[in-house]
């Protein structure tokens, strides 16, 4: 909806997921870049960058990487620490929490 009127190709996540010739990591990269490139950047350049990033990641994949764990990946602790002192993400997250009447009164 954001891109209506632009000439840039819009990637549909639903199609991307099932295009078996595109690597899963690449699917996510293309989809995410589509959202980031709102101001009609040169997409071919971005594509090359993505391809480079894609190949680099492949190289990093060690031979004995465990591809079947249920572990979640997170940013390093230092990053998380500095993120979760900022009021912005905290306030957004606080909306997800239920507030007791007592808490509401004390805030006022």
């Amino acid at each position: 909806s954001k891109l209506t009127g632009s000439v840039q190709r819009k990637w549909d996540i639903n199609k991307l997921i099932y295009l078996n010739n595109i690597d899963p990591a690449d699917v996510i990269a293309r989809w995410k870049s589509e959202e980031a490139e709102l101001d009609n950047e040169d997409s071919s350049e971005a594509d090359i960058e993505q391809e480079e990033a894609f190949f680099q990641k492949k190289d990093v994949q060690g031979s004995s990487e465990d591809l079947d764990t249920s572990q979640l990946e997170f940013a390093p602790l230092d990053e998380l620490k500095s993120k979760w002192v900022k009021p912005d993400p905290l306030d957004t997250l606080k909306k997800r929490f239920f507030k007791s009447p007592k808490q509401k009164i004390s805030e006022k």
Partner: peptide, 16 residues
Amino acid sequence: YKFLELLENSGVIGRN
């Protein structure tokens, strides 16, 4: 901290 991160990035259920 990871739990906060998980909450932020979750829909109805967590990624795991």
